[in-house]
């Protein structure tokens, strides 16, 4: 029971408390570069889920055989292998996504999240927790960049298109809002990436600050009550 709870914790920490983008600030390049639309963000997310989960599993299962002085090169080779595989699969089965993501597919190799999880977690833990950790982190990454992608696409174009980059079999778009507020072209460009990420980070920061203030106030109140109780005792 306890173990199950732990695994659940390993999974959710990547999504919430240790979210790679919004909390750890890792993997910023793809979070800015491929998030002009929801579909490209989701596509990149799927590739990262594939690479991160498999590299975590493989590294964790061979962690005892890899000599300490060559861990990093060995990890890089493992990660690069999975990236190459995923690159070829994308080029074959989702050519539109391959063209849209361009050099950012090979750049998954140097995504700090993946090497980071390999050294910080997979090389020290058993296979199952490593799998859960990789999956959680990758899903957290995917959700985060998809959020950026949704905001950029809605405010930039007023609609969410589907079937353009992912091979869904159908094509179209939803929402289709016709309003100048939802047609801010710069949001689909480079500046929009920086801007939306800034707004989201500030939003999460403000929530963190509020939470911390609440906690502080709560603690203060408790301490005050304790003191009052003590004082009462003394007088009694």
């Amino acid at each position: 029971m306890n173990e199950k709870l732990n695994l659940m914790k390993e999974f959710t920490k990547g999504i919430v408390s240790e979210n790679p983008i919004f909390v750890m600030l890792l993997g910023m390049c793809p979070a800015l570069a491929v998030t002009a639309t929801l579909e490209t963000s989701l596509g990149m997310g799927l590739l990262v889920i594939f690479v991160l989960t498999l590299s975590n599993v493989l590294i964790s299962s061979v962690r005892k055989f890899i000599p300490e002085n060559v861990t990093i090169p060995a990890f890089i080779v493992v990660i690069a292998t999975f990236v190459t595989i995923v690159r070829m699969l994308t080029q074959a089965y989702a050519p539109a996504l391959f063209d849209a993501l361009g050099i950012y597919i090979p750049l998954i190799v140097v995504n700090c999240i993946i090497l980071g999880r390999a050294t910080a977690f997979a090389s020290k833990n058993k296979v199952l927790p490593s799998l859960i950790d990789g999956l959680g982190m990758a899903i957290g990454f995917t959700l985060a960049i998809s959020l950026i992608g949704i905001l950029r696409e809605i405010f930039g174009t007023g609609a969410i298109a589907y079937g353009v980059y992912l091979p869904l079999g159908i094509q179209g778009s939803i929402l289709n809002i016709d309003s100048p507020l939802f047609n801010i072209a710069i949001l689909t460009g480079p500046a929009g990436g920086f801007l939306i990420l800034a707004v989201l980070l500030a939003f999460f920061n403000s929530r963190k600050i509020k939470k911390a203030e609440k906690l502080k106030a709560e603690r203060k109140r408790l301490a005050k009550e304790k003191r009052a109780a003590k004082a009462k005792e003394v007088t009694a």
Partner: peptide
């Protein structure tokens, strides 16, 4: 307070990108 650090840096980067 909530814009300190990285968020405000990103805004500067956005203006530079423009």
């Amino acid at each position: 307070e909530s814009w300190k650090g990285i968020p405000v840096s990103l805004v500067v980067a956005a203006i530079m990108a423009l």
